[in-house]
Write a protein that binds this DNA or RNA. Structure first.
Lengths: 146, 146
DNA sequence: ATATTAAACGATAATTATTCTCATTTGTCA
DNA sequence: TGACAAATGAGAATAATTATCGTTTAATAT
């Protein structure tokens, strides 16, 4: 019979594999991130963690969030938060984003088959439109890597 | 025979309709935004405009960008730039975003039919994955508006 | 268990992106 | 052309994030 690992145990194992110390702060930050079904900001995580570790500093939250992102334990919802990117193309279209150089290319809406949901969305959610991002590496960046 | 409006004339007409003064700065900012096929940051727009109006201030660029966004002449590429949003869900999934309260709901990948491009992408672009955002208004916000 | 050492922490300064304020200048319209 | 509201430029203020650095803590080898 398979041992059932607790979240805590899984977390510790992943840290060890990554060479990361299992600190109290790190553990609580991760636990809270998983606990909230939301997609919190670092500030919101800080608030939740502070309820349990009053002395924690916001910088520690940021540092660990970055560590977790690098380690793949966490994802960021948007590739291009951080600075406003403007789009003067008013025709309906989607985007192709290079994760290397962050350049953004337009894809006319007509190039993509319409999105179809298999079931009805979250109760009462009124859909305006779909926005598709094709993520990958652009020709130039792929070439630059040989 | 229909008169062919220049971009400049179209822009002036839209400004008039919106009650916006047609200033030199505003005109050049908009022209540069349309000229670049890219999706520039305000800073990048500022650099381009400064080549033509050396005395322009970055604040003016920001103010006009905001004005254009409000007016719908411009879009922002990402709804949630500005602050990092974290996601501890490591299963492949997409997002449903409320443009009112900015809450983000997960949609399991299996709920959406796979995206299909009709033609090959931008030369040499290597696709990693697709990220779909369903934009609209969540149940709670829709209810709050009556 | 304890000593050693590198990693992590907390406090806080620094940086970056963005917004705000206000005195001056410039379009708009009579 | 003149009056007035709107827009501009300069720079201060704020928000989000990163960096620095002295102290504390977890990992590990005794």
């Amino acid at each position: 019979m398979q041992p059932i690992e607790s979240l805590q145990q899984q977390f510790e194992a992943r840290c060890r594999k990554l060479g990361l110390a299992v600190t109290h702060q790190r553990t609580v930050i991760y636990r809270e991130l998983v606990a909230t079904g939301e997609h919190p900001t670092p500030e919101a995580v800080y608030e939740r963690v502070k309820a349990q570790i009053p002395a924690i500093s916001l910088g520690t939250v940021y540092k660990n969030v970055k560590t977790f992102l690098d380690a793949g334990l966490l994802k960021e919802v948007s590739l291009h938060h951080g600075t406003l990117r403007l789009d003067a193309n008013t025709d309906p279209h989607h985007h192709m984003v290079c994760r290397q150089c962050r350049r953004i290319f337009d894809i006319p809406e007509s190039e993509i088959e319409p999105v179809r949901l298999k079931n009805l969305p979250e109760s009462g959610f009124q859909i305006d439109r779909f926005s598709i991002e094709v993520l990958g590496v652009c020709g130039a960046c792929a070439a630059a890597r040989e």
